[in-house]
């Protein structure tokens, strides 16, 4: 079932057409990898979906409903959670406080921003979540994020997205700056996320990772989507040549024919 559909998304910055035209769909429980060189428009595309800025033209549908996304809050409310490279967590806050940042459980709600945090609920929910997502290393919900490793931080950020029952989780370079073992941990986690029924849009430079977890590959070049293939129908070398633009026309024809 279709969860997210983009139709003819366009975005310019001054005279630079960062996004010329982008259309694709994302199905339930699917991991789609978004590939492309630097400046291909990947960032612009995911920023448009996650509400960092609004698009100039085009339509976004969530579960068949046409939506307008004007802020990160809009995107979150629609069930689109984005996890940015290393900007997702506040290192000086505890795991529990990070997990609920912006959606804190409170008592006396009428006090608005001055409402007291429901600390017991915060800690219990955080512990339960850490257990459920199988972060086995017995992380303490009260531990500061600054004491965690890079992989643990990514896992926390992803589980936060899962916790709010996100329909679409966008992972922006989730394995950047991670060690080999931690990278495997995060990739395993992506599979678990899919198994739990969430859809994932994975942005990465590492094609090897794509072949380990993705169902489908979308390649962007110069603000356009130039290829879209299922992982089963392609191989590493082909994808690499599409990204760099070598022999692109032939591949494009092949893609269109499908």
């Amino acid at each position: 079932m279709e969860v997210l559909r983009l139709q003819n998304l366009q975005k310019s910055f001054g005279s630079v057409r960062a996004l010329k035209s982008a259309s694709f769909t994302l199905d339930e429980g699917e991991v789609v990898a978004l590939l492309g060189d630097n400046g291909a428009g990947k960032s612009t595309l995911i920023k448009a979906i996650s509400g960092v800025f609004s698009i100039d033209r085009g339509e976004i549908y969530v579960r068949g409903q046409k939506v307008s996304i004007r802020s990160t809050r809009d995107a979150m409310d629609l069930g689109i959670e984005t996890i940015h490279q290393d900007t997702s967590l506040a290192p000086d806050l505890s795991i529990a406080r990070n997990l609920f940042l912006g959606r804190e459980p409170v008592n006396l709600k009428w006090l608005g921003v001055f409402a007291p945090l429901d600390l017991a609920k915060l800690r219990d929910a955080a512990s339960a979540l850490l257990k459920r997502v199988g972060i086995s290393k017995k992380l303490d919900a009260d531990a500061l994020v600054s004491t965690l490793s890079g992989g643990e931080r990514q896992s926390i950020a992803i589980s936060r997205a899962m916790q709010f029952a996100a329909k679409v989780i966008i992972l922006d370079e989730p394995t950047n700056n991670l060690g080999v073992e931690e990278t495997h941990g995060v990739l395993r986690f992506v599979k678990e996320v899919r198994a739990a029924g969430h859809s994932v849009l994975l942005i990465t430079h590492n094609i090897h990772h794509v072949f380990q977890v993705a169902d489908r590959i979308i390649v962007m070049r110069r603000g356009e989507i130039v290829a879209e293939q299922t992982v089963a129908d392609t191989d590493l070398l082909t994808v690499e040549s599409i990204i760099t633009g070598a022999d692109m026309s032939a591949l494009l024809k092949e893609t269109r024919a499908k």
């Binding site: 506040a90 000086d92 940042l101 001055f114 600390l119």
Partner: peptide
């Protein structure tokens, strides 16, 4: 103890993360 305090610390700790969470 207040929600606002969580926001204040988060903004100072990692502003982009806080903004991304709708703070």
């Amino acid at each position: 103890y207040a929600k606002l305090g969580n926001w204040i610390s988060a903004i100072g700790s990692n502003r982009n993360a806080a903004v991304a969470r709708g703070v």
